[in-house]
Write a protein that binds this DNA or RNA. Structure first.
Ligand code: MN
Ligand code: MN
Ligand code: MN
Ligand code: MN
Lengths: 241, 241
DNA sequence: TTTCAATATTAGCCATACCTAAATATTACT
DNA sequence: AGTAATATTTAGGTATGGCTAATATTGAAA
Protein backbone atom coordinates (compact mmCIF):
# COMPACT_ATOMS: atom_id res chain seq x y z
CA UNK A 1 0.00 0.00 0.00
CA UNK A 2 1.16 3.50 0.89
CA UNK A 3 0.38 5.02 -2.50
CA UNK A 4 3.13 7.41 -3.31
CA UNK A 5 2.08 10.94 -4.05
CA UNK A 6 3.92 10.90 -7.34
CA UNK A 7 1.66 8.24 -8.78
CA UNK A 8 -1.44 10.38 -9.18
CA UNK A 9 0.54 12.88 -11.18
CA UNK A 10 2.22 10.35 -13.37
CA UNK A 11 -1.04 8.74 -14.45
CA UNK A 12 -2.55 11.96 -15.75
CA UNK A 13 0.55 12.63 -17.81
CA UNK A 14 1.50 11.43 -21.23
CA UNK A 15 2.24 7.79 -20.38
CA UNK A 16 -1.28 6.50 -19.72
CA UNK A 17 -0.65 3.03 -21.19
CA UNK A 18 1.35 0.25 -19.43
CA UNK A 19 0.07 -2.87 -17.74
CA UNK A 20 -2.58 -2.65 -15.02
CA UNK A 21 -2.32 -6.43 -14.53
CA UNK A 22 -5.08 -6.91 -12.02
CA UNK A 23 -6.75 -10.11 -10.98
CA UNK A 24 -9.55 -9.36 -13.42
CA UNK A 25 -7.17 -8.81 -16.31
CA UNK A 26 -5.39 -12.05 -15.49
CA UNK A 27 -8.67 -13.89 -15.48
CA UNK A 28 -9.66 -12.51 -18.88
CA UNK A 29 -6.34 -13.51 -20.36
CA UNK A 30 -6.56 -16.99 -18.92
CA UNK A 31 -10.09 -17.35 -20.21
CA UNK A 32 -9.11 -16.28 -23.71
CA UNK A 33 -6.13 -18.61 -23.67
CA UNK A 34 -8.21 -21.57 -22.62
CA UNK A 35 -11.06 -20.84 -25.00
CA UNK A 36 -8.88 -20.26 -28.03
CA UNK A 37 -7.68 -23.86 -28.04
CA UNK A 38 -5.50 -25.76 -30.50
CA UNK A 39 -5.10 -24.75 -33.20
CA UNK A 40 -5.66 -21.20 -32.02
CA UNK A 41 -8.92 -19.60 -33.08
CA UNK A 42 -10.64 -16.28 -32.43
CA UNK A 43 -12.71 -16.20 -29.28
CA UNK A 44 -16.13 -14.54 -29.25
CA UNK A 45 -17.16 -12.02 -26.60
CA UNK A 46 -20.10 -14.17 -25.73
CA UNK A 47 -17.95 -17.15 -24.91
CA UNK A 48 -15.84 -15.10 -22.58
CA UNK A 49 -18.91 -13.62 -20.95
CA UNK A 50 -20.29 -17.08 -20.39
CA UNK A 51 -17.01 -18.41 -19.07
CA UNK A 52 -16.63 -15.57 -16.59
CA UNK A 53 -20.31 -15.21 -15.69
CA UNK A 54 -20.53 -11.57 -16.72
CA UNK A 55 -22.39 -9.73 -19.47
CA UNK A 56 -21.11 -9.43 -23.05
CA UNK A 57 -21.09 -5.67 -22.68
CA UNK A 58 -18.58 -5.91 -19.87
CA UNK A 59 -16.43 -8.15 -22.00
CA UNK A 60 -16.39 -5.79 -24.96
CA UNK A 61 -15.44 -3.03 -22.61
CA UNK A 62 -12.52 -4.93 -21.18
CA UNK A 63 -11.35 -6.23 -24.54
CA UNK A 64 -11.06 -2.68 -25.76
CA UNK A 65 -8.93 -1.79 -22.77
CA UNK A 66 -6.72 -4.82 -23.22
CA UNK A 67 -6.25 -4.06 -26.91
CA UNK A 68 -5.39 -0.42 -26.17
CA UNK A 69 -2.52 -1.23 -23.84
CA UNK A 70 1.04 -0.70 -24.90
CA UNK A 71 2.04 -3.33 -25.74
CA UNK A 72 -1.42 -4.69 -26.56
CA UNK A 73 -2.50 -7.75 -24.60
CA UNK A 74 -5.04 -8.89 -27.18
CA UNK A 75 -5.72 -8.45 -30.86
CA UNK A 76 -9.31 -7.36 -31.01
CA UNK A 77 -11.32 -7.22 -34.23
CA UNK A 78 -14.62 -5.55 -33.57
CA UNK A 79 -17.44 -8.08 -34.11
CA UNK A 80 -14.95 -10.84 -34.87
CA UNK A 81 -13.60 -11.89 -31.53
CA UNK A 82 -10.15 -11.67 -30.00
CA UNK A 83 -6.99 -13.61 -29.70
CA UNK A 84 -4.08 -13.07 -27.40
CA UNK A 85 -1.30 -10.78 -28.50
CA UNK A 86 2.26 -11.71 -27.67
CA UNK A 87 2.30 -9.94 -24.32
CA UNK A 88 -1.12 -11.32 -23.42
CA UNK A 89 -0.12 -14.86 -24.18
CA UNK A 90 3.04 -14.42 -22.17
CA UNK A 91 1.04 -13.24 -19.20
CA UNK A 92 -1.58 -15.98 -19.55
CA UNK A 93 1.07 -18.66 -19.62
CA UNK A 94 2.83 -17.05 -16.71
CA UNK A 95 -0.33 -17.21 -14.64
CA UNK A 96 -1.01 -20.78 -15.68
CA UNK A 97 2.56 -21.69 -14.77
CA UNK A 98 2.03 -20.07 -11.39
CA UNK A 99 -1.23 -21.89 -10.92
CA UNK A 100 0.13 -25.32 -11.70
CA UNK A 101 3.37 -24.88 -9.83
CA UNK A 102 1.44 -23.71 -6.80
CA UNK A 103 -0.91 -26.68 -7.02
CA UNK A 104 2.01 -29.06 -7.22
CA UNK A 105 3.74 -27.33 -4.36
CA UNK A 106 0.70 -27.38 -2.12
CA UNK A 107 0.22 -31.06 -2.81
CA UNK A 108 3.79 -32.25 -2.55
CA UNK A 109 5.32 -29.96 0.01
CA UNK A 110 2.36 -28.91 2.11
CA UNK A 111 0.39 -32.15 1.84
CA UNK A 112 -2.80 -30.61 0.55
CA UNK A 113 -5.27 -33.18 -0.78
CA UNK A 114 -5.58 -32.87 -4.55
CA UNK A 115 -9.13 -31.56 -4.40
CA UNK A 116 -8.13 -28.49 -2.36
CA UNK A 117 -5.18 -27.21 -4.34
CA UNK A 118 -7.11 -25.58 -7.15
CA UNK A 119 -9.01 -23.08 -5.08
CA UNK A 120 -5.94 -21.88 -3.24
CA UNK A 121 -3.90 -21.67 -6.45
CA UNK A 122 -6.62 -19.67 -8.14
CA UNK A 123 -6.00 -16.84 -5.71
CA UNK A 124 -2.28 -17.06 -5.13
CA UNK A 125 -1.38 -17.31 -8.82
CA UNK A 126 -1.88 -13.55 -9.10
CA UNK A 127 0.27 -12.51 -6.18
CA UNK A 128 3.47 -14.53 -6.07
CA UNK A 129 6.71 -13.00 -7.28
CA UNK A 130 9.05 -14.29 -9.93
CA UNK A 131 11.35 -15.22 -7.11
CA UNK A 132 8.72 -17.32 -5.42
CA UNK A 133 7.89 -19.04 -8.67
CA UNK A 134 11.53 -19.84 -9.25
CA UNK A 135 12.06 -21.14 -5.73
CA UNK A 136 9.12 -23.53 -5.66
CA UNK A 137 10.01 -24.79 -9.13
CA UNK A 138 13.51 -25.54 -7.89
CA UNK A 139 12.23 -27.13 -4.69
CA UNK A 140 10.02 -29.45 -6.74
CA UNK A 141 12.75 -30.29 -9.24
CA UNK A 142 11.09 -28.39 -12.07
CA UNK A 143 8.06 -30.60 -12.44
CA UNK A 144 6.38 -31.01 -15.81
CA UNK A 145 2.86 -31.77 -14.57
CA UNK A 146 0.56 -30.69 -11.78
CA UNK A 147 -1.37 -33.07 -9.52
CA UNK A 148 -4.23 -33.32 -12.01
CA UNK A 149 -1.93 -34.17 -14.88
CA UNK A 150 -1.94 -30.74 -16.50
CA UNK A 151 1.31 -29.71 -18.13
CA UNK A 152 3.18 -26.86 -16.49
CA UNK A 153 4.33 -24.23 -18.99
CA UNK A 154 8.10 -23.85 -19.06
CA UNK A 155 9.76 -20.55 -18.21
CA UNK A 156 9.75 -19.57 -21.86
CA UNK A 157 6.03 -20.33 -22.03
CA UNK A 158 6.38 -23.53 -24.01
CA UNK A 159 3.95 -26.38 -23.45
CA UNK A 160 4.01 -29.93 -24.79
CA UNK A 161 1.51 -29.96 -27.62
CA UNK A 162 -0.35 -32.93 -26.28
CA UNK A 163 -3.83 -33.19 -27.68
CA UNK A 164 -5.69 -34.67 -24.72
CA UNK A 165 -8.65 -36.77 -25.63
CA UNK A 166 -11.85 -37.05 -23.62
CA UNK A 167 -12.32 -40.57 -22.30
CA UNK A 168 -15.94 -40.31 -23.42
CA UNK A 169 -14.73 -40.64 -27.03
CA UNK A 170 -13.52 -44.21 -26.56
CA UNK A 171 -15.38 -47.20 -27.87
CA UNK A 172 -16.18 -50.22 -25.71
CA UNK A 173 -13.19 -52.53 -25.46
CA UNK A 174 -10.64 -49.72 -25.88
CA UNK A 175 -8.01 -48.95 -23.25
CA UNK A 176 -6.16 -45.74 -22.52
CA UNK A 177 -4.03 -44.09 -19.86
CA UNK A 178 -5.42 -41.20 -17.84
CA UNK A 179 -3.41 -38.10 -18.66
CA UNK A 180 -5.39 -35.52 -16.73
CA UNK A 181 -8.64 -34.79 -14.96
CA UNK A 182 -10.57 -31.54 -14.55
CA UNK A 183 -9.49 -29.79 -11.40
CA UNK A 184 -12.25 -27.39 -10.51
CA UNK A 185 -14.77 -29.62 -8.76
CA UNK A 186 -13.45 -30.84 -5.41
CA UNK A 187 -16.28 -33.29 -4.87
CA UNK A 188 -15.64 -34.91 -8.22
CA UNK A 189 -11.92 -35.15 -7.50
CA UNK A 190 -12.59 -36.91 -4.22
CA UNK A 191 -14.88 -39.32 -5.99
CA UNK A 192 -12.33 -40.06 -8.68
CA UNK A 193 -9.64 -40.63 -6.09
CA UNK A 194 -11.93 -43.04 -4.29
CA UNK A 195 -12.29 -44.97 -7.54
CA UNK A 196 -8.52 -45.08 -7.92
CA UNK A 197 -8.63 -42.84 -10.97
CA UNK A 198 -5.68 -40.48 -11.30
CA UNK A 199 -3.13 -39.54 -13.96
CA UNK A 200 -1.14 -42.55 -15.13
CA UNK A 201 -3.78 -45.13 -14.34
CA UNK A 202 -4.95 -47.36 -17.21
CA UNK A 203 -8.67 -47.42 -17.93
CA UNK A 204 -10.58 -49.89 -20.06
CA UNK A 205 -14.04 -49.02 -21.29
CA UNK A 206 -16.18 -52.10 -20.85
CA UNK A 207 -19.50 -50.79 -22.07
CA UNK A 208 -21.65 -47.72 -22.24
CA UNK A 209 -25.21 -48.22 -21.06
CA UNK A 210 -27.80 -47.28 -23.65
CA UNK A 211 -29.34 -43.80 -24.08
CA UNK A 212 -26.28 -41.82 -22.95
CA UNK A 213 -26.10 -43.91 -19.83
CA UNK A 214 -23.22 -44.56 -17.49
CA UNK A 215 -19.87 -46.00 -18.50
CA UNK A 216 -18.69 -49.32 -17.10
CA UNK A 217 -14.94 -48.99 -16.71
CA UNK A 218 -12.11 -51.19 -15.51
CA UNK A 219 -9.62 -49.22 -13.44
CA UNK A 220 -6.09 -50.60 -13.81
CA UNK A 221 -6.22 -54.37 -13.41
CA UNK A 222 -8.87 -54.35 -10.72
CA UNK A 223 -11.43 -57.09 -10.87
CA UNK A 224 -14.60 -55.14 -10.39
CA UNK A 225 -15.77 -52.38 -12.68
CA UNK A 226 -16.49 -48.75 -11.82
CA UNK A 227 -19.69 -47.15 -13.04
CA UNK A 228 -19.11 -43.57 -14.13
CA UNK A 229 -21.68 -40.97 -15.16
CA UNK A 230 -21.48 -39.19 -18.48
CA UNK A 231 -20.45 -35.90 -16.91
CA UNK A 232 -17.76 -37.67 -14.90
CA UNK A 233 -16.37 -39.36 -17.98
CA UNK A 234 -16.15 -36.04 -19.75
CA UNK A 235 -13.79 -34.77 -17.10
CA UNK A 236 -11.27 -37.53 -17.69
CA UNK A 237 -8.69 -37.05 -20.43
CA UNK A 238 -6.59 -39.84 -21.78
CA UNK A 239 -3.85 -40.71 -24.21
CA UNK A 240 -4.42 -43.83 -26.23
CA UNK A 241 -1.32 -45.92 -26.66
CA UNK B 1 -13.68 -12.82 -9.95
CA UNK B 2 -16.98 -13.52 -11.61
CA UNK B 3 -19.07 -11.13 -9.57
CA UNK B 4 -22.36 -12.80 -8.94
CA UNK B 5 -25.37 -10.87 -10.06
CA UNK B 6 -26.94 -11.16 -6.64
CA UNK B 7 -24.18 -9.14 -5.05
CA UNK B 8 -25.21 -5.78 -6.46
CA UNK B 9 -28.68 -6.20 -5.04
CA UNK B 10 -27.61 -7.40 -1.68
CA UNK B 11 -25.30 -4.47 -1.04
CA UNK B 12 -27.97 -1.85 -1.55
CA UNK B 13 -30.21 -3.61 0.96
CA UNK B 14 -30.37 -3.31 4.68
CA UNK B 15 -27.22 -5.26 5.60
CA UNK B 16 -24.51 -2.83 4.49
CA UNK B 17 -22.09 -3.67 7.33
CA UNK B 18 -19.74 -6.75 7.42
CA UNK B 19 -16.04 -6.89 6.79
CA UNK B 20 -14.56 -5.66 3.50
CA UNK B 21 -11.08 -6.75 4.64
CA UNK B 22 -8.95 -5.35 1.86
CA UNK B 23 -5.22 -4.94 1.74
CA UNK B 24 -5.65 -1.32 2.78
CA UNK B 25 -7.79 -2.22 5.77
CA UNK B 26 -5.25 -4.82 6.83
CA UNK B 27 -2.50 -2.26 6.61
CA UNK B 28 -4.40 0.25 8.73
CA UNK B 29 -5.05 -2.37 11.37
CA UNK B 30 -1.43 -3.46 11.43
CA UNK B 31 -0.32 0.16 11.68
CA UNK B 32 -2.62 0.85 14.60
CA UNK B 33 -1.51 -2.31 16.33
CA UNK B 34 2.14 -1.47 15.98
CA UNK B 35 1.72 2.16 16.95
CA UNK B 36 -0.40 1.51 20.01
CA UNK B 37 2.43 -0.32 21.76
CA UNK B 38 2.71 -1.71 25.29
CA UNK B 39 0.86 -0.82 27.35
CA UNK B 40 -1.78 -0.04 24.77
CA UNK B 41 -2.46 3.64 24.13
CA UNK B 42 -4.69 5.61 21.78
CA UNK B 43 -3.15 6.25 18.39
CA UNK B 44 -3.51 9.67 16.75
CA UNK B 45 -4.64 10.07 13.15
CA UNK B 46 -1.48 11.95 12.38
CA UNK B 47 0.72 9.09 13.47
CA UNK B 48 -1.12 6.70 11.22
CA UNK B 49 -0.96 9.13 8.33
CA UNK B 50 2.76 9.46 8.81
CA UNK B 51 3.27 5.73 9.13
CA UNK B 52 1.33 4.98 5.95
CA UNK B 53 2.48 8.02 3.95
CA UNK B 54 -1.02 9.36 3.37
CA UNK B 55 -2.87 12.47 4.53
CA UNK B 56 -4.64 12.77 7.88
CA UNK B 57 -7.92 13.34 6.03
CA UNK B 58 -7.64 9.92 4.47
CA UNK B 59 -7.00 8.41 7.84
CA UNK B 60 -10.01 10.01 9.48
CA UNK B 61 -12.11 8.77 6.61
CA UNK B 62 -10.94 5.21 6.96
CA UNK B 63 -11.16 5.20 10.75
CA UNK B 64 -14.80 6.15 10.50
CA UNK B 65 -15.41 3.26 8.18
CA UNK B 66 -13.57 0.83 10.38
CA UNK B 67 -15.48 2.00 13.43
CA UNK B 68 -18.80 1.67 11.61
CA UNK B 69 -18.35 -1.97 10.73
CA UNK B 70 -20.31 -4.64 12.46
CA UNK B 71 -18.51 -5.75 14.52
CA UNK B 72 -16.40 -2.59 14.76
CA UNK B 73 -12.72 -3.02 13.94
CA UNK B 74 -11.62 0.04 15.91
CA UNK B 75 -12.87 2.17 18.75
CA UNK B 76 -12.70 5.65 17.42
CA UNK B 77 -13.10 8.74 19.59
CA UNK B 78 -13.32 11.77 17.41
CA UNK B 79 -10.30 13.99 18.08
CA UNK B 80 -8.88 11.50 20.52
CA UNK B 81 -7.39 8.80 18.41
CA UNK B 82 -8.27 5.14 18.00
CA UNK B 83 -7.48 1.81 19.40
CA UNK B 84 -8.26 -1.58 18.00
CA UNK B 85 -11.56 -3.20 18.90
CA UNK B 86 -11.65 -6.90 19.55
CA UNK B 87 -12.26 -7.88 15.94
CA UNK B 88 -9.64 -5.43 14.69
CA UNK B 89 -7.01 -6.74 17.05
CA UNK B 90 -7.87 -10.27 16.03
CA UNK B 91 -7.39 -9.40 12.40
CA UNK B 92 -4.18 -7.46 13.01
CA UNK B 93 -2.66 -10.37 14.87
CA UNK B 94 -3.85 -12.74 12.19
CA UNK B 95 -2.06 -10.73 9.54
CA UNK B 96 1.06 -10.45 11.65
CA UNK B 97 0.97 -14.20 12.22
CA UNK B 98 0.66 -14.70 8.50
CA UNK B 99 3.52 -12.34 7.85
CA UNK B 100 5.92 -13.94 10.25
CA UNK B 101 4.99 -17.50 9.36
CA UNK B 102 5.47 -16.70 5.70
CA UNK B 103 8.84 -15.10 6.37
CA UNK B 104 9.96 -18.13 8.30
CA UNK B 105 8.67 -20.45 5.63
CA UNK B 106 10.36 -18.58 2.81
CA UNK B 107 13.61 -18.62 4.71
CA UNK B 108 13.59 -22.18 5.97
CA UNK B 109 11.77 -24.07 3.26
CA UNK B 110 12.42 -22.02 0.17
CA UNK B 111 15.90 -20.81 1.11
CA UNK B 112 15.19 -17.12 0.73
CA UNK B 113 17.93 -14.92 2.19
CA UNK B 114 16.67 -13.12 5.28
CA UNK B 115 16.71 -9.73 3.62
CA UNK B 116 14.20 -10.78 0.93
CA UNK B 117 11.50 -12.39 3.01
CA UNK B 118 9.87 -9.24 4.29
CA UNK B 119 8.85 -7.81 0.94
CA UNK B 120 7.30 -11.06 -0.25
CA UNK B 121 5.50 -11.61 3.05
CA UNK B 122 4.12 -8.10 3.00
CA UNK B 123 2.07 -9.00 -0.06
CA UNK B 124 1.19 -12.62 0.59
CA UNK B 125 0.07 -12.06 4.17
CA UNK B 126 -3.23 -10.72 2.82
CA UNK B 127 -4.02 -13.57 0.48
CA UNK B 128 -3.24 -16.90 2.10
CA UNK B 129 -6.03 -19.04 3.51
CA UNK B 130 -6.40 -20.37 6.99
CA UNK B 131 -5.51 -23.74 5.55
CA UNK B 132 -2.27 -22.46 4.12
CA UNK B 133 -1.40 -20.81 7.39
CA UNK B 134 -2.05 -24.02 9.25
CA UNK B 135 -0.03 -26.13 6.84
CA UNK B 136 3.09 -24.00 6.85
CA UNK B 137 2.94 -23.70 10.62
CA UNK B 138 2.81 -27.50 10.83
CA UNK B 139 5.60 -27.90 8.29
CA UNK B 140 7.79 -25.60 10.33
CA UNK B 141 6.95 -27.26 13.63
CA UNK B 142 4.94 -24.30 14.90
CA UNK B 143 7.83 -21.89 15.21
CA UNK B 144 7.78 -19.16 17.84
CA UNK B 145 9.98 -16.64 16.04
CA UNK B 146 10.58 -15.41 12.51
CA UNK B 147 14.01 -15.02 10.90
CA UNK B 148 14.46 -11.56 12.36
CA UNK B 149 13.62 -12.70 15.86
CA UNK B 150 10.06 -11.35 15.94
CA UNK B 151 7.60 -13.43 17.92
CA UNK B 152 4.90 -15.16 15.91
CA UNK B 153 1.43 -14.68 17.42
CA UNK B 154 -0.17 -17.98 18.39
CA UNK B 155 -3.43 -19.11 16.85
CA UNK B 156 -5.37 -17.47 19.67
CA UNK B 157 -3.51 -14.21 19.03
CA UNK B 158 -1.32 -14.44 22.11
CA UNK B 159 2.18 -13.06 22.03
CA UNK B 160 4.97 -13.37 24.61
CA UNK B 161 4.97 -10.02 26.37
CA UNK B 162 8.67 -9.51 25.87
CA UNK B 163 9.62 -5.89 26.17
CA UNK B 164 12.40 -5.66 23.60
CA UNK B 165 14.99 -3.07 24.38
CA UNK B 166 16.87 -1.01 21.82
CA UNK B 167 20.57 -1.84 21.92
CA UNK B 168 21.20 1.89 21.76
CA UNK B 169 20.04 2.12 25.39
CA UNK B 170 22.96 0.11 26.73
CA UNK B 171 25.88 1.67 28.55
CA UNK B 172 29.49 0.93 27.63
CA UNK B 173 30.64 -2.33 29.14
CA UNK B 174 27.17 -3.88 29.12
CA UNK B 175 26.40 -7.09 27.26
CA UNK B 176 23.10 -8.36 25.87
CA UNK B 177 21.70 -10.95 23.50
CA UNK B 178 20.19 -9.89 20.21
CA UNK B 179 16.51 -10.74 20.29
CA UNK B 180 15.41 -9.16 17.03
CA UNK B 181 16.35 -6.77 14.26
CA UNK B 182 14.20 -4.51 12.09
CA UNK B 183 13.19 -6.34 8.97
CA UNK B 184 12.21 -3.69 6.46
CA UNK B 185 15.57 -2.57 5.08
CA UNK B 186 17.21 -5.30 3.00
CA UNK B 187 20.49 -3.48 2.70
CA UNK B 188 20.75 -3.10 6.45
CA UNK B 189 19.94 -6.76 6.95
CA UNK B 190 22.71 -7.78 4.59
CA UNK B 191 25.11 -5.54 6.44
CA UNK B 192 24.13 -6.95 9.80
CA UNK B 193 24.50 -10.49 8.50
CA UNK B 194 27.95 -9.62 7.22
CA UNK B 195 28.87 -8.44 10.74
CA UNK B 196 27.60 -11.70 12.18
CA UNK B 197 24.73 -9.97 13.93
CA UNK B 198 21.53 -12.01 14.14
CA UNK B 199 19.07 -13.10 16.81
CA UNK B 200 20.77 -15.05 19.59
CA UNK B 201 24.19 -13.50 19.15
CA UNK B 202 25.73 -11.82 22.20
CA UNK B 203 26.79 -8.21 21.81
CA UNK B 204 29.00 -6.20 24.11
CA UNK B 205 29.02 -2.43 23.87
CA UNK B 206 32.61 -1.31 24.10
CA UNK B 207 32.12 2.42 23.71
CA UNK B 208 30.06 5.06 22.05
CA UNK B 209 32.02 7.72 20.24
CA UNK B 210 31.24 11.23 21.43
CA UNK B 211 28.51 13.51 20.03
CA UNK B 212 26.08 10.72 19.08
CA UNK B 213 28.83 8.96 17.20
CA UNK B 214 29.17 5.32 16.23
CA UNK B 215 29.07 2.39 18.62
CA UNK B 216 32.04 0.09 19.01
CA UNK B 217 30.62 -3.35 19.58
CA UNK B 218 32.03 -6.82 20.21
CA UNK B 219 30.05 -9.44 18.33
CA UNK B 220 30.01 -12.76 20.18
CA UNK B 221 33.53 -13.55 21.29
CA UNK B 222 35.19 -12.19 18.20
CA UNK B 223 38.47 -10.41 18.72
CA UNK B 224 37.91 -7.33 16.61
CA UNK B 225 35.12 -4.85 17.18
CA UNK B 226 32.36 -3.79 14.80
CA UNK B 227 31.61 -0.09 14.33
CA UNK B 228 27.90 0.53 14.03
CA UNK B 229 26.12 3.78 13.21
CA UNK B 230 23.48 5.22 15.48
CA UNK B 231 20.66 4.35 13.09
CA UNK B 232 21.96 0.80 12.80
CA UNK B 233 22.10 0.38 16.54
CA UNK B 234 18.53 1.57 16.84
CA UNK B 235 17.40 -1.31 14.68
CA UNK B 236 18.86 -3.92 17.00
CA UNK B 237 16.78 -5.08 19.94
CA UNK B 238 18.19 -7.04 22.81
CA UNK B 239 17.35 -8.73 26.06
CA UNK B 240 19.74 -8.08 28.89
CA UNK B 241 20.47 -11.13 30.98
C1' DT C 1 -30.68 -10.69 -52.36
C1' DT C 2 -33.38 -9.69 -48.73
C1' DT C 3 -34.56 -10.56 -44.05
C1' DC C 4 -33.93 -11.63 -39.46
C1' DA C 5 -32.16 -13.79 -35.35
C1' DA C 6 -28.06 -14.11 -32.97
C1' DT C 7 -24.33 -11.62 -31.46
C1' DA C 8 -21.76 -7.58 -30.35
C1' DT C 9 -21.12 -2.75 -29.38
C1' DT C 10 -22.26 1.77 -27.55
C1' DA C 11 -24.06 5.01 -24.35
C1' DG C 12 -25.09 6.12 -20.05
C1' DC C 13 -24.71 4.71 -15.29
C1' DC C 14 -23.74 2.62 -10.73
C1' DA C 15 -20.88 1.01 -6.96
C1' DT C 16 -16.75 0.36 -4.41
C1' DA C 17 -12.46 1.67 -2.79
C1' DC C 18 -9.06 5.02 -1.70
C1' DC C 19 -7.18 9.11 -1.81
C1' DT C 20 -6.69 14.58 -1.94
C1' DA C 21 -6.85 19.81 -0.88
C1' DA C 22 -9.05 23.37 1.37
C1' DA C 23 -12.09 25.02 4.77
C1' DT C 24 -13.42 24.49 9.36
C1' DA C 25 -13.44 22.85 14.03
C1' DT C 26 -11.50 21.14 18.31
C1' DT C 27 -8.11 20.59 21.80
C1' DA C 28 -4.78 21.59 24.93
C1' DC C 29 -1.41 24.74 26.19
C1' DT C 30 0.56 29.01 27.53
C1' DA D 1 -8.63 33.79 26.64
C1' DG D 2 -5.83 33.21 22.76
C1' DT D 3 -3.45 30.30 19.73
C1' DA D 4 -0.81 26.66 17.52
C1' DA D 5 -1.17 22.01 16.60
C1' DT D 6 -4.15 18.52 15.32
C1' DA D 7 -8.22 16.57 13.47
C1' DT D 8 -12.47 16.59 10.84
C1' DT D 9 -15.61 17.90 7.22
C1' DT D 10 -16.61 19.06 2.71
C1' DA D 11 -16.44 18.39 -1.83
C1' DG D 12 -14.45 16.14 -5.30
C1' DG D 13 -11.01 13.07 -8.15
C1' DT D 14 -9.24 8.69 -10.09
C1' DA D 15 -9.42 3.96 -11.07
C1' DT D 16 -11.53 -0.46 -11.66
C1' DG D 17 -15.06 -3.27 -13.17
C1' DG D 18 -19.52 -4.13 -13.54
C1' DC D 19 -24.78 -3.47 -15.56
C1' DT D 20 -29.00 -2.27 -18.62
C1' DA D 21 -31.08 -0.69 -22.62
C1' DA D 22 -30.65 0.92 -27.08
C1' DT D 23 -28.46 0.18 -31.36
C1' DA D 24 -25.62 -1.93 -34.85
C1' DT D 25 -23.45 -5.70 -37.32
C1' DT D 26 -23.06 -10.14 -39.20
C1' DG D 27 -24.06 -14.22 -41.54
C1' DA D 28 -27.10 -17.75 -42.75
C1' DA D 29 -31.72 -19.07 -44.16
C1' DA D 30 -35.41 -17.98 -47.03
MN1 MN E 1 -7.52 -16.43 -10.50
MN1 MN F 1 -4.58 -28.51 -12.03
MN1 MN G 1 0.88 -5.66 3.57
MN1 MN H 1 10.21 -10.25 10.39
Amino acid sequence: MAKLLAKQKRMTDAVRTQAPASEAVDDYLKAIFQLSGHPERQVASNEIALHLSITPASVTNMLQKLAAQEPPLVIYKKHHGVKLAKAGKRRALEIIRHHRLIETFLHQVLDYPWDEVHQEAERLEHFISERFEERIAAKLGHPKFDPHGHAIPALDGSLPSQEPQAFAMLRPGQSANVSSVSDNDPEMLRYLAAQGIRPGVRLTLSEQLPFQGSYRVRVGTSSKLALLSHSLVQSIFVTIK
